[in-house]
Nucleic acid binder design. Structure first.
Lengths: 209, 209
DNA sequence: AAATGTTTTAATCAAATGTTTAAAACAGGT
DNA sequence: ACCTGTTTTAAACATTTGATTAAAACATTT
C-alpha cells in the first residue's frame, strides 16, 4: 500500500461523520470524544490517531458545515443570468433543501459563535458571501426602479429572508413540542413555506412605507 | 437575625445573576461552576451551599428565563380591548425590549432544547401561551373577514413575526462580524425593525395568494 | 516468511471539574 | 461571655474526560 496516504478512508470518514452528528447536536463543550468514538463504532484512541485532538476535529466540522451553507449560496448569487425574482425563489429553496438534510446546523453554528466569538473568528475565515448578497439586492433594487423603498436598507430584506427560512429550523424542537407535530407535520409546514416565503419577500420589495 | 429565612439575599442573588450570565453565554455544558463562582465573586463551595448542584441552579435559570419571555407575552395577548393591529405592534415591541436586555437569551433557550429535548421537557412545563397566540390570530383573521388568506395557516404569520424579531438577535454575533457594526450600529438596525416588522406582518395578512 | 509500515486496541496518565468536608468567621440571643 | 445557628473558606475527593503509550493485529513488499 502507498505509504501514509490511503489510511483506510472508511475509518477516517466514520469518525468525521460521527463528529458531525454529535457536535451539531450537543455543541463543542457538550460533546465527549468518547461519544463520538462510540457513535463511529471505533476505539477512542483512533480519534486522536486520525485527527490529533478534539479541537482539530471540531475545526474541520465547522469548516465543512459552513462550506455547505456558503459555497452553494455564492454560486447561486453570482449567476448573472437569473432575475431577482428567480434568485429569491432559488435561495429560499436552497436553504430549505440544505436545512432539511441538516436541521441542527443553524443552531449549532450560531451557538458556537455566541459561546466564543473570538475562537470562531480565528477558526473560520469570515465569509464575505453575505455581503455579496447585499450588493445583489442593492443592484436589483435600482434595476427595478421601485419607488418608496428608497429608505429601507435592503439588508433588512435579506435578514427577513434568512430569518423566515432558518429560524423555524432553529426553533424546530420547540415548535414540535408546542404544536405536537411529528416529523411529517413539520415537513409539510416547511414545504408550505418554500412557496410562501418568496411571495412575502417580493411583496416587501413593493411596499411603500 | 431571623432563622433560615433572610440568608443574606445578596449572596444568593449574586450567584443567580452570575449563573444567568454565564449559562446564557456558554450553555450548560460549556459553563464551569468555577466560572460562575468567580463571576459572582464568591467562594466555589457557596454555589453548592445555596443551590445544591449545577443542575438545580441551571433549572432555576431556565425557568426564570422562559418566565421573562412568556409571562409578559401572555398578559399582552389576553388584553381583549386592544385591536389586532395594535397587538402586532405591541408584541413586536415587547420582544425587542426584552431581547435588547437579554440578547443571548433566544440562542440559549433554543440551544439547550436542541442539545437535550427530553431534559428540557422534564424541567419546564410546556408553555401553552404560544398556542393562545395562534388562537388569537385565528380569531382575528375571521374578524377581519380578509379574503384570500383563507388557505394560509395563521401559524405561518406568527412564526414570521417571531422569526423576524428573534432571529437577528440569535445571529447578532455573526451579523456584527459580517457588517462590521458596533453595538450602536446593531441597535439602530433593531430600532428600524421595530417599526418595519409590524408593517410587513400586516401586509402579509392582506396578501392574496 | 521476514521485514516493514500502517491501523487498532487496552491500559494508563494528567488535568479539569462537580461536589463534599471540616473548620473558621460571623451574628444574634441569652 | 457563652451558646447557637448561619455563612464563608480552604482543602480535599471522586469522577469525568482529553490525550498518550506500548503492544498487538493487519497488510504490503521483498
Amino acid at each position: 500500500m502507498e505509504k501514509g496516504v490511503n489510511k483506510d478512508a472508511s475509518t477516517e470518514e466514520k469518525i468525521k461523520a460521527a463528529a458531525f452528528k454529535i457536535f451539531q447536536q450537543k455543541g463543542f463543550a457538550g460533546s465527549r470524544t468518547r461519544d463520538i468514538a462510540e457513535e463511529a463504532g471505533i476505539n477512542l484512541a483512533l480519534l486522536n490517531y486520525y485527527y490529533r485532538s478534539k479541537e482539530k476535529l471540531f475545526k474541520i466540522v465547522i469548516e465543512e458545515s459552513l462550506g455547505q451553507l456558503f459555497i452553494q449560496l455564492q454560486r447561486l448569487i453570482n449567476e448573472e443570468s437569473t432575475s431577482l425574482s428567480e434568485k429569491i425563489d432559488k435561495i429560499t429553496g436552497l436553504y430549505i433543501d440544505l436545512l432539511k438534510k441538516n436541521p441542527n446546523l443553524p443552531l449549532f453554528i450560531l451557538g458556537e459563535i455566541q459561546s466564543d466569538p473570538e475562537k470562531f473568528k480565528k477558526q473560520v475565515g469570515i465569509p464575505d458571501i453575505s455581503i455579496q448578497e447585499i450588493v445583489t439586492i442593492r443592484q436589483a433594487k435600482e434595476q427595478m426602479k421601485i419607488t418608496g423603498i428608497e429608505n429601507i436598507d435592503p439588508f433588512h430584506i435579506i435578514i427577513n429572508l434568512i430569518s423566515m427560512t432558518i429560524f423555524p429550523f432553529a426553533a424546530r424542537p420547540m415548535i414540535k413540542i408546542l404544536t405536537k407535530w411529528d416529523d411529517n407535520g413539520f415537513d409539510q409546514f416547511i414545504e408550505e413555506r418554500r412557496q410562501l416565503i418568496p411571495v412575502w419577500i417580493k411583496s416587501m420589495l413593493k411596499i411603500e412605507k
